[in-house]
Simulated assay, not measured.
Amino acid sequence: MPPEGQRLPLETPRKLLEHLVLRFPGREREAKAVVLGLVAGEHVSLIGEPGVAKTALVEEAARALRAKYFYVQMFEGITPDVVFGPPNIKALRERGELVFNTEGYLPDAEIAFLDEGWLAPPAVLHSLHSILNERRFRNGSKVVNCPLHTAIVASNEKPKSRSLQAMWDRVLLRLWVKPLPPDLWETYLDTYWDAHASGVVYQRPQLKLDDFRLLSKAIWRVEWRGVKEAYVRILHELVKKGFWVSDRRKGRALKAVAANALLEGRTICQPEDLFVLVYVLPSDEKQVEECQLLLEEKLDPHAKLLRRLKDLKPQVEALARSMPGDVGGIPEFVEKVKAARATIVDIQSQAMQDDRVQSLAQELLSTLDEALRKAAQMVLGDVGPVVQA
């Protein structure tokens, strides 16, 4: 654990989240789940059909963090060497010992993406379980420590086999990923085409995985007891609705709550941090909606509005940085900024007496107004402040 007086790199997860949101429009929830996993030093399960940017998002996060990254697509007949590395023939011949050359494979990775990870066969499963949960790998007669910080397990559905239930319970964050809604298709198509046809290069932040390692150790210093009663009430209500939450998961869920506080730049949990429980407590897709509705009911309505603004913040900051370099793209940019501004004004109007909502809304509006001012300067020259109706 870092020394008490050491400054925490609280800006790093926010920068990564903003970058992923800019790079993958409409994937804010997925980006947040991955970043929370990195802050907590925990694993993430992304469940959904192929082609919804799961792999690309995780690869981009690994590149931004300059982390050792390993990808593997599991299938029922996969052999251990594909996951753990080729066997050392010399050790096998001379000592009859199965030793893997692990460099560049899962035991050597810092961030891993296990595509269809729940299809791992028994020959792989035992060692995989040890790496994910203990960060250790038995290689021949030796047990080696693994540098793995976070693994993302992707699949079309949650595991059904009993042999996988213990591992499923230990994956802290779970998210059911859906195709983009129709209102985001145009934005996605623009982003996709520009990135491939126009050669647009996204400026990738130069971040460090070590910052996340530091935060995952410091997470135990986050003060969470201010939300303890609310958390216990939520657990009771979910159990009444038929949720089954293991004792282990009840405790480890607090890591997600504390990780959200750190992501927001705080070391003290607030009620809105409990909204991340929707990533932790549901065990199937139907329960996700039930959990979300309960959280919104039990947490004060202003906390719900504040959460919406905080979810919008990385989008607003990404939008402000995406101003086109030529005048031809300004009209479309201005329309997007005005639409975002209208959404924030609507949220702001619903909580006129809440200083938290008003302050954050004004911060976001100022960011958008500055973007509009710069757009006006590009078109007309220095015209001074832009006044919004």
Results as ranks from 00 to 15, higher is better:
Gly140Tyr: 00
Lys158Ser: 12
Met167Tyr: 03
Lys158Asn: 09
Pro147Asp: 07
Val171Ser: 11
Ile152Pro: 01
Asn139Met: 01
Val153Cys: 01
Cys146Tyr: 09
Ser141Lys: 08
Ser163Asp: 14
Val143Arg: 10
His149Phe: 12
His149Ser: 12
Trp168Met: 04
Ala154Glu: 02
Arg136Val: 06
Phe137Ala: 00
Pro147Cys: 08
Ser161Arg: 15
Ala154Ser: 15
Arg138His: 13
Thr150Phe: 11
Val144Tyr: 06
Val171Lys: 10
Gln165Arg: 10
Pro159Leu: 15
Ala151Arg: 06
Val153Asn: 00
Leu173Ser: 15
Lys158Val: 15
Pro147Phe: 05
Asn145Phe: 13
Lys160His: 14
Val153Tyr: 00
His149Pro: 12
Cys146Pro: 10
Asn145Thr: 15
Gly140Cys: 02
Val153Trp: 01
Val153His: 01
Thr150Trp: 08
Leu172Trp: 07
Val144Asp: 08
Ser141Thr: 09
Asn139Asp: 00
Glu157Trp: 11
Val144Asn: 05
Phe137Gly: 00
Gln165Val: 03
Leu172Pro: 05
Met167Arg: 01
Lys160Ile: 15
Lys160Trp: 14
Val144Lys: 11
Ala154Phe: 09
Pro159Gln: 12
Trp168Arg: 03
Arg138Ser: 11
Thr150Glu: 06
Lys158Glu: 13
Arg170Leu: 04
Gln165Ala: 10
Arg170Gln: 10
Ala151Cys: 10
Glu157His: 15
Pro147Thr: 05
Leu148Cys: 13
Val144Ser: 09
Leu173Val: 15
His149Asn: 12
Val144Trp: 07
Ser163Thr: 14
Asp169Thr: 02
Thr150Gln: 11
Asp169Ser: 01
Leu164Asp: 05
Lys160Ala: 14
Gln165Pro: 04
Pro159Glu: 10
Asn156Ala: 04
Ser141Ile: 05
Lys158Pro: 12
Asn145Gln: 15
Asp169Glu: 04
Ser141Tyr: 06
Lys142Gln: 13
Arg138Met: 11
Asp169Trp: 03
Ala154Pro: 06
Asn145Pro: 08
Lys158Asp: 10
Asp169Lys: 01
Leu148Glu: 08
Val144Met: 13
Val143Glu: 14
Asn145His: 14
Thr150Ile: 10
Glu157Arg: 14
Val144Phe: 07
Ile152Trp: 05
Thr150Lys: 09
Val153Asp: 00
Arg162Tyr: 12
Arg162Phe: 12
Cys146Asn: 08
Cys146Glu: 08
Val171Trp: 09
Arg170Lys: 03
Leu164Cys: 04
Thr150Arg: 09
Leu148Tyr: 10
Ala166Val: 03
Ala166Ile: 05
Leu173Glu: 14
Gln165Lys: 10
Arg138Tyr: 08
Ala166His: 03
Gly140Leu: 00
Ala154Lys: 04
Ala154Arg: 04
Ser163Asn: 13
Leu173His: 15
Ala166Trp: 02
Asn156Ser: 04
Ile152Met: 08
Leu172Gln: 06
Asp169Met: 01
Leu164Met: 08
Pro147Trp: 04
Lys160Asn: 13
Asn139Trp: 00
Ser163Cys: 09
Arg170Ile: 06
Ile152Arg: 02
Ser163Lys: 14
Ala166Leu: 04
Arg136Ala: 06
His149Gln: 13
Cys146Thr: 14
Ala166Ser: 10
Ala151Tyr: 05
Gly140Phe: 00
Arg162Thr: 11
Leu148Gln: 11
Asn156Phe: 02
Gly140His: 00
Pro159Cys: 10
Lys158Gly: 03
Ser161Leu: 14
Ser161Tyr: 08
